[in-house]
Design a protein around this nucleic acid. Structure first.
Lengths: 192, 192
DNA sequence: AGCTAATATGAGGAGAACTCATGTTAACTC
DNA sequence: GAGTTAACATGAGTTCTCCTCATATTAGCT
């Protein structure tokens, strides 16, 4: 079902995605669909969670296979893997780690929550995991604001990369390069 | 109608906003509503456009009233004004300049376009206008990549500030400070 | 006043998310 | 193997939203 959801997202986008069509393609009756997912948001959230795990697994593998010598290389690796998934993983281009639709202002409405790990932002999860991976590997004194710095870096990088993929189907190369510069510049402050 | 839309957005969020309720509160029959706006997206788009103009007007006024002496001050001013509008302008916290809902992957569906100046991203509009304001005022050689750098900076700042307001109703002060650092660091490359 | 074009209105059509009464299977007991 | 019960599966139907369009109303002009 998640697979069909991902393919459909690429075809029609989030707004035009219907639970009925996902169910039909996955050859599940609609009633069964609602035993697995409480609502449409929950379906997309599950896909985002799977994407997040897949991404972190890939990063961990690549870090283990070819440990980067310095921070700049590590940033490149992390950005490049994101770009690769945007290009190749169905649905990733539309939802990546989530946050497709949010209603932060108001009271809790059905399907209003943002997240995976309730009250914890997806990108915060990504930031925390990346931080422990990289801090272990490159041996940095875990400074006070490092955690926050990672969250900021991930949030900013995510935004610029999303822009890169809106500007060009395969991701505008100049914007991808600029994203790396942005992150390196910023993080170099926190890791002298 | 835009005013009522903005208030409702703060109350119930984007997902739960209904055209009927907006029309009812603005005391317009639903049919009349659809003479002004083609659909729900168009309503929110119009509000985003108004927000964008209001923001740029405020920035222009403040730049004229107290011209910043250097780039760091200019960045502070631009960020602080954004924060002020997030806090005070109804609806701004939910939609700011737009992009609430997007379906970039697929073919054109009703309400799928992203924005104001067709095919031109909102944040690109913001970046271009800010660039001309600041370049005039601070007299920088308009380097080659300056335009792109501004787009990247605006996109990144927007993302971090959105995060700051998800973390805290009034905007997490630490994250706001970190946003300024991020932008200053990055832009200092492009403006030696 | 009479006529025409523009605008205003809200009941209703189309369609999506989600439910729930009923049907089906599985597991366990004697 | 028959009987009982609990868990699961199903899809017609309910509710609610967006949006349309036939009709009513107004404004402008002769």
């Amino acid at each position: 079902m998640l697979d069909e959801c991902a393919l459909l997202l690429d075809e029609v986008g989030y707004a035009a995605l219907t639970t009925k069509e996902v169910a039909r393609r996955a050859e599940v009756p609609i009633g069964t669909f609602y035993q697995f997912f409480t609502d449409k948001q929950s379906l997309v959230r599950a896909l985002a969670l799977r994407n997040l795990e897949a991404y972190l697994d890939r990063i961990a593998s690549r870090l283990a296979a070819a440990p980067p010598s310095d921070w700049a290389d590590a940033v490149d690796l992390v950005v490049d893997e994101f770009v690769r998934m945007k290009r190749t993983t169905p649905g990733f281009g539309v939802v990546d780690f989530g946050e497709v639709l949010a209603a932060p202002g108001g009271p809790a409405f059905p399907g209003t929550q943002r997240m995976l790990d309730e009250a914890l932002e997806n990108n915060v999860v990504v930031a925390d995991r990346l931080r422990s991976l990289l801090v272990d590997l490159l041996g940095v004194a875990p400074g006070d604001g490092l955690s926050r710095a990672f969250v900021v870096a991930v949030e900013a990088a995510d935004a610029v990369l999303k822009l890169a993929f809106r500007a060009h189907p395969d991701g505008d190369p100049d914007l991808i390069a600029e994203c790396k510069r942005l992150v390196r510049r910023y993080l170099s402050d926190h890791l002298q």
